[in-house]
Design a protein around this nucleic acid. Structure first.
Length: 682
DNA sequence: CAAGTAATTGTTTTT
DNA sequence: CAATTACTTG
């Protein structure tokens, strides 16, 4: 018999006083206020290990809720290291010792709902709608609810979806959400209510769940007098990361999982709350104090990440948080004098792009690999010009956030086809696949669908299609019918089925088919097509290269990422372009104080991603609001978040444009126009 | 009714 | 200026 002695010192090794306090805390709910770079992940992982070793909590009875899939796999890999099995997926396997359950709220909810589908009165076939599908359904239902062509501007499908999810995630009624956040939609409040009711019915009838449903169902089950104790009983200890970014439903789930908070650990930093637009509210972090009277708070303020120069700026721009204040103290060696952040004022965006490239290459020459550098932007398109420059200079890069691979038409086609195999009642997926056939448009697709839904006789339904589409449709249906029963090779069938359709539809079919090839391979690696689909919707690949697995080690590339997607990550060198009012405080947020506060926290998150070196860029002219054909350049004011105090902590330089502006008086173009105009005078 | 062409419109961030 | 919508043609 192998006896494993728990070595507490090994777990606590290398941790500072506050971290140890957090790791070994017992006897009640714990809130760890962890500033950026203070070893939060490390502490959380150590606490999980300590709970297992010192408190005898079985691994499989520990639940670790994280905010992103990336954070989950990162922590689980470390937390499960040393236990049986090399896997890291949060499957909570029943093997000896077991593994920690870990994942995003949505992923865990999905797992539990799948396991108990019947109890939720759900068909085990249920599939998950991605946000785009939700918008499509709402769009299709909109005309039935007085929200189309009424002469006035009505909320479009996207706006409806936003309002819907906001209602759900904040737990507030439509009327309130509309008046607070979408005042221009106020006249349509009752129509929206009707629309949302119909949307819900539609989902239920088709065995479809959207992201919000996953949370709602888990919450409802936990609140159920009979099911609640069982689900609650699955876990002895609950750890929640990034608590400042939970929404009302998630906060409620945590309360239901740990009503007395005995084994509850929450980690957060309200200066880093950046998901308000999704219904998250840092107030939930403060609310913990009220919910759990015995709550103990441990503050982690020693920053191990950043050099003094970066840290000084971070502290200067840290948004003040009432009640839960935290100032970071540095722990890295004294910085050389050159390590103050450098503000580069650029003439325009092209200059900015060149400056970034130059500094990236300089650092590269000095031994900092491209992998160790990142460019972080507020919005995906902020890197457009930079990407052109990088491509021209042959600097490899990978972009995270922004446009998603799963948003491309052919990938949607693949997913739709797979969804039909998994859930034949998914008429949204059918609609998409049908229209891929030549000769079938919206009208015929609807007709086929009408024939399809009641009796489920696929071959019969095909006769509703126009003659010229008959053959192709028969082939499609034949393949679907063959594959419907068998489990293995379904991804292969999807690919075979789509091949001719994709060729017929897209002029550039070759690269698209190559994408699908990879997609099919990735899907085949999953236990079932069902799992592959859930994976794909809950955790879409952030770039096409993501699918190919971990990048080769010898490949070196620069990272471009949105600030949101960079959360929790760090790089030795970080470049922050577009530090201009209207870009970093996004012009969408300039209106309301809450929005501005969130932009401020976003800036703080961006600054604190840097370990050694931070470069700030402010283009003085940039095209703002392209209206019509005039590409007027707006005047960029340096971001308000870099106030005088913060500027004093930075070095500063100015980059001249490649082509210096001519010292012309007035507009040369209008003078030419005037000259031309005189030619047309009779 | 589907497919191609012209006009119009609007834009963060993501589980 | 791209992507969706409105209109025309086959």
């Amino acid at each position: 018999m192998f006896i494993c002695m728990f070595d507490e010192n090994a777990v606590l090794d290398g941790l500072n006083e506050q971290q140890r306090q957090a790791v070994t805390h017992q006897g009640g709910p714990l809130l760890v206020l962890a500033g950026a770079g203070t070893g939060k992940t490390r502490t959380l992982v150590a606490r999980a290990a300590w709970l297992r070793g010192a408190q005898d909590v079985p691994a499989s009875r520990i639940l670790l809720l994280t905010f992103t899939r990336r954070a989950a796999s990162d922590m689980l890999a470390r937390a499960n290291a040393g236990s049986e099995g090399a896997g890291w997926e949060g499957t909570g396997s029943d093997g000896a010792g077991g593994k920690i359950w870990g994942g995003t709220f949505h992923a865990i909810a999905h797992k539990i709902i799948r396991r108990h589908a019947e109890s939720f009165s759900l068909s085990p076939q249920f599939t998950i709608l991605d946000p785009g599908d939700t918008t499509d359904i709402l769009d299709a239902l909109r005309p039935d609810h007085g929200l189309a062509e009424t002469g006035q501007r009505t909320p479009r499908a996207g706006a409806c979806a936003d309002i819907y999810t906001r209602c759900v995630n904040t737990g507030r009624p439509v009327s309130e959400v509309v008046t607070a956040g979408y005042p221009w939609c106020a006249p349509f409040t009752s129509q929206l209510s009707g629309l949302f009711r119909a949307y819900t019915e539609r989902k239920r009838a088709r065995h479809l769940l959207d992201f919000d449903d996953l949370l709602l169902l888990w919450q409802a089950a936990l609140a159920d007098p009979a099911a609640g104790p069982v689900l609650r009983g699955m876990f002895d200890a609950v750890l929640v990361d990034e608590y400042q970014d939970v929404n009302a439903v998630q906060a409620s789930i945590v309360r239901l999982l740990q009503p007395d908070g005995k084994q509850l650990t929450c980690v957060g930093d309200d200066a880093q709350a950046i998901y308000g637009f999704r219904g998250a509210d840092p107030a939930h972090l403060r609310q913990l104090t009220a919910d759990y009277p015995g709550l103990d708070i441990v503050r982690l303020h020693r920053n191990y990440r950043s050099r003094p120069g970066v840290l000084d700026l971070a502290n200067l721009v840290r948004p003040s948080a009432p009640g839960l204040d935290l100032t970071l103290t540095g722990d890295r060696g004294p910085g050389d004098s050159g390590s103050a952040p450098l503000l580069v004022r650029c003439h325009d965006e092209a200059t900015q792009a060149r400056e970034i490239c130059a500094r990236v290459l300089d650092a590269h020459e000095d031994g900092t690999a491209l992998r160790d550098q990142a460019v972080l932007v507020r919005a995906g398109h902020h890197s457009d010009i930079l990407e052109i420059e990088l491509t021209a200079r042959k600097i490899p890069y990978v972009k995270f956030g922004g446009l998603k691979f799963t948003d491309t038409a052919h990938v949607k086609d693949f997913i739709a086809t797979a969804r039909i195999l998994v859930n034949p009642a998914d008429d949204l997926a059918w609609f998409r696949l049908l229209r891929l056939h030549e000769g079938i448009g919206p009208a015929h697709a609807r007709r086929v669908l009408a024939a399809l839904v009641p009796d489920g006789d696929w071959a019969q339904a095909a006769t509703a299609a126009p003659p010229r589409a008959q053959r192709a449709l028969a082939a499609t249906i034949g393949l679907l019918a063959d594959a419907a029963g068998q489990a293995p090779g379904q991804a292969e069938t999807v690919l075979a089925l789509l091949d001719p359709l994709i060729r017929g539809r897209y002029p550039d079919s070759a690269p698209r088919l190559a994408d699908l090839r990879r997609l099919a391979d990735a899907a085949a690696a999953q236990p079932s097509l069902h799992d592959a689909l859930a994976e794909l919707t809950l955790d879409p690949p952030s770039s096409a290269s993501d699918l190919a697995g971990p990048p080769r080690l010898d490949e070196d590339y620069l990272t471009i990422s949105t600030i949101h997607a960079a959360k929790g990550l760090e790089w030795p060198i970080v470049h922050l372009p577009h530090l201009v009012d209207g870009a970093l405080p996004s012009d969408m947020a300039l209106g309301d104080p809450d929005g501005l506060a969130e932009e401020h926290r976003l800036f703080y998150v961006a600054v604190t991603r840097a370990r050694d070196r931070l470069y700030l860029y402010a283009p003085q002219r940039l095209h703002i609001r392209r209206r019509g054909r005039d590409d007027r350049h707006g005047l960029g004011q340096l971001t308000r978040f870099l106030n005088a105090e913060a500027l004093a902590a930075c070095d500063s330089t100015t980059a001249a444009p490649l082509v210096p502006p001519l010292p012309a008086t007035g507009s040369l173009a209008s003078r030419v126009d005037a000259a031309l105009g005189s030619l047309w005078d009779a």
